[in-house]
Structures are given as C-alpha cells and as structure tokens.
Simulated scan of single mutants.
Amino acid sequence: MKFVASFFDRDDRYSLGVEEQSSTAYLSIPVSNSAADYEEYYALSDHECAAYATDREKARAFAEQCRRHEHDDRLIRKPGWSRGTPR
C-alpha cells in the first residue's frame, strides 16, 4: 500500500490523501505504541474527502471521532495486538 497525502493539518494532527493502489481516499491520524510512531488510515468516500478538504471543522470532528475509535470499521489497515494511542 502506498499512502500519498495531499493535505496536512498540523494543528489538528490529521492528513487527507489517497492510497494509490486502490484509489481509496483516507484521513489519517498519528498514533504511538511502545515500539513506534505510525499513522492509522481511515477510508473515506470521495465525497467525504472533498468535503473535509474544504471544511476543516468537519475534518477535525471526524479525526477526533477516529481518535475515540468510533470509526474502526473504516480502518484501511487493522491494528496489531499493540495498538497505538493517539498523539
């Protein structure tokens, strides 16, 4: 999988982009576990991605929901046994 970000919000700590092989739009958030810092990638519809690109408040709210694990069904890569916590 190759994730290519097109937008970064450093204040609210999320990014938007596309996974190139599947053309799946995503929102990602940074997380950490005892071994590494990494990103969790949440699948978006093209409509959601376009909306979040123009409405930072909606994107921020979705990122916060992801941090609370409310959209785990959308994770593109499922976490392993040592799931990280949001940074």
Rank of each mutant, 00 (worst) to 15 (best):
D55A: 10
E48T: 06
H69S: 14
K58P: 03
E57T: 11
C66L: 02
R56F: 06
L75D: 10
Y52Q: 03
H47M: 09
A43Q: 02
D46V: 11
C66A: 05
R56G: 00
D46P: 13
A63Y: 00
D72I: 01
K78F: 05
R56I: 12
A53G: 13
W81S: 15
D55Y: 08
R60N: 09
R67L: 09
A61D: 14
R68C: 03
T54Y: 03
T54H: 04
A50S: 12
W81E: 15
A61Y: 06
Q65E: 14
H69Y: 11
K78M: 12
D72S: 01
S45Y: 08
F62H: 08
D73S: 10
A51Q: 14
R68D: 07
Q65A: 12
L44D: 00
C49W: 09
L75Y: 09
K78A: 13
L75N: 05
F62R: 05
A43R: 00
L75K: 07
A53E: 08
C66K: 03
K58S: 11
D55Q: 12
D46E: 15
R56N: 07
G80Y: 00
C66Q: 01
R77E: 15
H47N: 06
L75H: 07
W81H: 15
C66W: 01
R67T: 09
I76W: 06
G80D: 02
Y52S: 04
L75F: 11
R77T: 09
D72A: 00
W81F: 11
K78W: 10
R74F: 07
R74W: 08
A61S: 06
E70I: 06
A50C: 09
E64S: 09
C66T: 00
R77M: 13
A51H: 08
W81T: 15
A59E: 00
D73H: 13
C66F: 00
K58N: 05
D55N: 14
E57L: 12
E70T: 02
W81K: 15
C66P: 04
H47L: 10
D72R: 04
R74K: 13
